[in-house]
């Protein structure tokens, strides 16, 4: 003990340095967004490529599952295609939309890293800036929404998952069309979310489906989940609705990054009205 004290005393300059320097670096990483983003982040090239390599092996193990999922999706799409292709008397008189109809493009990405057990979960995808992915884009999967792109590097992107305490997605109820913001809330179950800010007078039925409202990054009408419980926090002017998420976060393999072609135009217009008002 005495020797330890002697050593500490003799090299006190060094130990003070370690303490002060460590604390300062902690402050740096905590408070500067750039350093935080590049210090502990799986879109960082080294970690990202390591994950990609592991994932290349893992993906073989899941081929069967992925195949089924893709086949199901194919079937669904074919069904919708039929509807579109069917000769219909109404279609005959349709006017082509001058906007060109296609507002969203989808970039297919593979999940190279995923977590559902943290308080704030992040997902890493194998598509990056090179493939046109930008910060703030929405990410969906064939049966639900996944999250929002947080950081982008050349070949990888990290996604702030829906299972993150700060993710908010605008979602609407099927019957009434009332919209609110969907968040993960204070639970630790990867299958449950909370739909907030739905006014009290709206009638909500259990099992009612919830879709994206189209006000945020996501296209309208993407399924989010089903209502399983309403009015959790009583006595307020808003309902809190518990939603069972349709996205299977625990076996997320392939996702689509939503590229909104008109996003610049929309943002410009909205910022203009903000400036005026």
């Amino acid at each position: 003990m005495k020797n330890l004290w002697l050593i500490l005393n003799k090299y006190n300059a060094f130990f003070f340095f370690v303490i002060f320097f460590g604390y300062a670096v902690y402050l740096v990483v905590q408070n500067n967004s750039f350093q935080r983003a590049s210090a502990v982040n799986s879109s960082n090239e080294f970690i990202g490529s390591a994950y990609a390599r592991i994932n290349a092996w893992q993906s073989y193990l899941n081929l069967r599952e992925v195949n089924t999922q893709l086949a199901e999706e194919n079937a669904g799409l074919r069904e919708r295609l039929q509807l579109l292709a069917a000769p219909d008397s109404i279609v005959g008189g349709a006017v082509t939309d001058s906007m060109g109809n296609i507002r969203y493009r989808y970039v297919v990405a593979k999940v190279t890293n995923n977590s559902i057990h943290q308080k704030n979960n992040y997902i890493t995808l194998d598509k990056g800036r090179k493939h046109g992915v930008k910060k703030g884009m929405g990410v969906i999967t064939s049966n639900g929404i996944v999250g929002i792109v947080l950081n982008v590097s050349e070949h990888f992107a990290t996604v702030q998952s829906l299972l993150h305490s700060e993710t908010r997605v605008s979602a609407a109820l099927e019957d009434s069309g009332a919209f609110g913001s969907l968040m993960w809330g204070d639970n630790y179950d990867a299958q449950l979310g909370i739909l907030k800010d739905i006014p009290n007078h709206v009638k909500v039925r259990e099992g009612e489906r919830v879709f994206t409202s189209g006000f945020s990054l996501f296209p309208q009408g993407i399924p989010v989940g089903n209502v399983i419980q309403t009015g959790i926090a009583g006595g307020d002017s808003f309902l809190d609705i518990r939603v069972k998420l349709s996205t299977q976060f625990h076996n997320l393999k392939q996702v689509y990054i939503v590229v909104d072609i008109l996003t610049d135009e929309k943002e410009m217009l909205e910022s203009q009205s903000e400036n005026d008002g």
């Binding site: 902690y26 408070n31 500067n32």
Partner: peptide, 22 residues
């Protein structure tokens, strides 16, 4: 607006100063 960066550098500076003087 770079909380911590200069503080860390100054801690290093203090150490360098101590070493040099010693």
């Amino acid at each position: 607006d770079t909380l911590g960066v200069n503080a860390a550098a100054c801690a290093a500076l203090a150490w360098g100063r101590i070493l040099f003087i010693r």
